[in-house]
Computed example of a mutant assay.
Amino acid sequence: MACSQYISTKETTHAARVSRLLLDPCTDLFRDILRNHVTEVQFPFILQKEKNTLSPILNKAQREKLYPRSGNFTGTYDVFDLSLLYILLRNISGITPHQKGWGKSPDPSDRSLSANIDRIREIRNTYCGHAVSVSLLDAEFLKLWQDLTIIITELEGSLPGGCTTYTDAANIIKTVTMDPEQEKRFLDMIDQQHQSTADLKKIMSGITTNLKNQNVNLNMLELRRVVTDVDITELEINQKRERTELEKVKYEQDKQRTELNDLSTNLARLEKLSNSEKKKYETSRDDREVDTVVGETTWSDDELYYVVEETPSSGELYYIVEETSQGDEEVDYVVEETPSNDELYYIVKETARGAKELFDDVVEKPLIGNLDNLIEETARSAARGAEKLLDFLEDK
Results as ranks from 00 to 15, higher is better:
206 G>V: 04
351 T>G: 09
134 V>E: 07
299 W>P: 09
291 D>T: 09
388 K>A: 10
58 L>P: 01
227 V>C: 05
150 I>M: 02
26 C>M: 06
55 S>G: 04
116 N>P: 03
3 C>R: 14
128 C>V: 04
225 R>Y: 06
226 V>Q: 15
70 S>V: 07
1 M>I: 10
257 R>A: 13
242 E>W: 11
296 E>M: 10
41 V>R: 07
5 Q>N: 11
379 A>R: 12
317 L>H: 06
15 A>T: 03
147 D>C: 02
11 E>C: 04
219 N>C: 10
62 Q>Y: 01
362 V>M: 14
147 D>Y: 08
68 P>D: 02
342 D>F: 13
271 E>Q: 05
374 L>S: 09
45 F>E: 10
194 H>M: 05
150 I>A: 10
378 T>S: 12
108 P>G: 02
346 Y>H: 15
46 I>W: 00
199 D>A: 03
380 R>K: 15
300 S>V: 05
126 T>A: 07
136 L>W: 07
210 N>T: 09
376 E>K: 13
383 A>I: 11
265 T>S: 11
3 C>E: 14
273 L>G: 03
56 P>C: 03
214 Q>T: 08
318 Y>I: 07
171 N>S: 12
111 R>C: 03
143 K>T: 08
300 S>E: 12
166 Y>M: 10
293 V>Q: 13
303 E>Q: 15
188 D>G: 08
99 Q>S: 09
322 E>T: 14
91 N>Y: 01
156 E>D: 08
354 G>S: 12
206 G>K: 11
266 N>T: 11
31 R>A: 01
311 T>H: 06
50 E>W: 02
305 Y>R: 15
64 E>G: 06
10 K>C: 04
55 S>L: 15
49 K>G: 06
207 I>A: 03
271 E>W: 01
131 A>M: 02
2 A>W: 03
53 T>F: 07
317 L>Q: 06
276 S>G: 01
118 D>E: 14
317 L>A: 09
288 R>Q: 13
241 R>K: 13
338 T>R: 08
148 L>Y: 00
3 C>G: 10
26 C>K: 00
237 I>S: 11
8 S>H: 10
33 I>T: 01
6 Y>G: 08
344 L>G: 04
92 I>G: 00
330 E>S: 13
179 D>G: 12
237 I>V: 15
298 T>A: 14
61 A>Y: 01
140 E>D: 10
